[in-house]
Design a protein around this nucleic acid. Sequence first.
DNA 1: ATCGTAGGCGCC
DNA 2: AAAGGGCGCCTACGAT
Length: 568
Amino acid sequence: MNEPVFERSESVAVALAPGVGIGLASSDRRWSLPTIDAAATFRRIHERSAPRWVWWDRATAELLAEARVPIDRCWDVATVHRFMHGGWRTPLGELWARHHGLSLEDLPTMGQLDLLRATDDEGNPDDPVRPDGHLRPEWLDGGFTTSPERLADWAALALQVSIEQDQRLGDLPDPERARSSARSESAADLLCAELSVHGLPVDEPGATALITDLAGPPTHSTADADAVRAERDEPVLAALRPRSEVNLRNPAEVKSMLRRQGFDLPDTRAWRLEQLRESSPLIDALLTWRKAERIATTYGHEWLASHVDGGRLRGEWASSDGAAGRMTASAGLHNLPSMMRPIVRAETGHRLVRADLGQIEPRVLAAVSGDRALIDATVQDDLYRPVAARLGVDRELAKVAVLGAMYGATTGASAGALAGLQRSYPVAMAFLEEAAEAGRRAEDVMTAGGRRVRMWHDPSTEGDLDRAISVAASRGRYARNAVVQGSAAEFFKVWAITVRRRGRPLGAEVVLCLHDELLVHVPAEHADDAATMVAAAVDEAAHYWSPTPGVRFVADVSVVERWSEAKG
DNA sequence: ATCGTAGGCGCC
DNA sequence: AAAGGGCGCCTACGAT
């Protein structure tokens, strides 16, 4: 039981439906169990034998998360499909059609009045696949749950697709790496199901107090709400000479108001206003207003009421929703303002292990490009110091230059340092430039783990050369960033699922994933062991994930009660 | 009414 | 130091 969760093992597919039963399928048989409490029964099956469980998509993962079935190894067909083809969520009917090369034009939809098809041979309604090869929409729409036998048939189809996916991953440049990615990405999706179901521990009374302090009291009527809003607006309106009733929530009105007050600005973005803050009480009031308005509208009492329940903040987690396969989360879980982070607090008798990877993107660039000089720089805790020394510039400029190279900056100081980067780290820079060039040509690029990142064509550029060039340039920046950010996302997920797995004996639960940061909720008596485990998991993840040996990854790990507590 | 877009801003 | 990559989500507004 010590092998990593993404190694190969025997596969058994499962489909389950509460109140109906469980369907199972292996390479040589399929069987079913009628049972009311499908998830709890499945838990016992899993405890007896733990193969690599195969399922269609998140729906199954969520049932298993709700039942707290401790699964490490899985294969999520929809997740692997996204990995292979790029893009966002794909409904199963469409996934099946793409997988089998069927036309998406005649993709059946549930409840459509298809008069032309009405007399066609619809085949056997107990067969999930129609004569035309498409999945039967009635099955997709819950029909697979109507009997234990159907669940077994449904599981068997998932198994079949998973085997074909595994074969097709063999066509990628590095088949074993791609298959390993498919497995780790599947485990990450299961982790996302758990994050969605279980949530992040939050100090609810503390949150109410903080929001009241920052944005005003909760309101119970629209008049009440209007009054609180007017009170929030007052300091800004009072600073106007002469006073006027400007709608602060309309950027165009704010811009013309500022022009009348003597500030002629191209837009009213905060970084632009910030420079004027010292010299103008009005600008200061406006910036303060924006902060408070942000809390009130996005992270206010309504937000708390709709997303926090029983002391847990819940959102929808996606394991590879981003362009390059990053995790995403709704309900503000990924963009909670730092001033609100104190509300994230360990439950009684527990601690949070807070860990973040240091300088993850340049280290990933070293790993995926294999640039010897950059790999050498990863030995240092602060990678930018040796880079600065080699470039002969200060650390801040070195940092800006490296980040700029990965983001596609073309102007300013970072562009000035680009020539130096190209001389000192030619392999890494050539790697980035190659990705950018592919992007400009509208060719898909691939992350280190083998995820396809789709490029796009913009038909509206026909005949408009300037616009065509500008769109190509933005694709170049996108591709340049995607090969680093997407690869970093893969490494992060391997780390996260390793922590999930290794934390189980300690009762440790991953409660937040934030691109390079993890929060782990753990009983207080195991907090120190969990912290040690999380740090060790970085090395374990690097060992399995990194395409180049010798790249050092670092993490800052501390045990805290609240997320906001200083790094230790 | 519902949808998409833009300006804006939070986080990485 | 410059304002580049990703995401979610708010308001306002114009289109359908």
